[in-house]
Amino acid sequence: MSVVELATLQVSKTVDARGTSCPGPILAAKKGIVDVKVGEIMMVLATDSGTKKDLPAWAKKMGHDYLGVLEEGGIFKLYVKRLK
């Protein structure tokens, strides 16, 4: 997805994992995804740069669609669409 597409996504839940380190962001994603309906999008906020690789791996394993990441001033916004 392009930067513009990501930035204009309709996010139904934001999970704040800023300041946490591995495995904090994926723990937060696991907790957060249950509050998102199938087909809707969760945004994970993180400051740990490993999350850029970890969250796609988590989404693949869990059967969700990882849409991409936006970076703003050291904060990563990662988008995941719940598929099941």
Binding site: C22, P23, I26, L27, A29, K30, A57, W58, K61, M62
Partner: peptide, 11 residues
């Protein structure tokens, strides 16, 4: 414990 927690978070 980091690996265990990561694996559990991945289902």
């Amino acid at each position: 414990f980091i690996i265990a927690n990561g694996a559990a978070a991945m289902g």
